[in-house]
Amino acid sequence: MNKPLVICISVILALSFAIILIVSPDDEEFLARYSDENYVTAATFDVPADARIVKIVSSTRPFDCRKVTTDTDRLEIKINREIFGDFTDHMLRNMKAELHASGTTLNLEISLPGDMWHYTVGTFTIARLFDYYDRLMDEQAEIMICAPENYVFE
């Protein structure tokens, strides 16, 4: 390996590191992207007021899903609108959601027509060793399911 080639490789490697740093948002921007106001409601269901269990029966892959309980009296499926590409529009147009009651459990079935291309650029998993970054990385969710406060997710 000659000297110019080594210098060239060193510059490319240093630039790779710098580019990742430059294009990445900081923590505040990342959290803002997944804050509650950035989700639009895609489907709502009236549910009984007494405490029950919500079970998501269909696989919600390829997207990540956050389950929360709020002071709403309905079950809501929300889609994040700050996502790169045409995911949000596609989901709002084509997502199918059905709710089936089975005893005290409500089975929520979410499905999508056809295949979806999906790719996540992830960071070092070892950062999850630290509580703060573990919680931060858990914030990433394309879909949020909101249930009344007296409901539990299974």
Partner: peptide
């Protein structure tokens, strides 16, 4: 249809 997510922050 595509879903491309950049899940890296400067800090993490």
């Amino acid at each position: 249809v595509s879903l491309f997510t950049w899940a890296i922050t400067k800090e993490n």
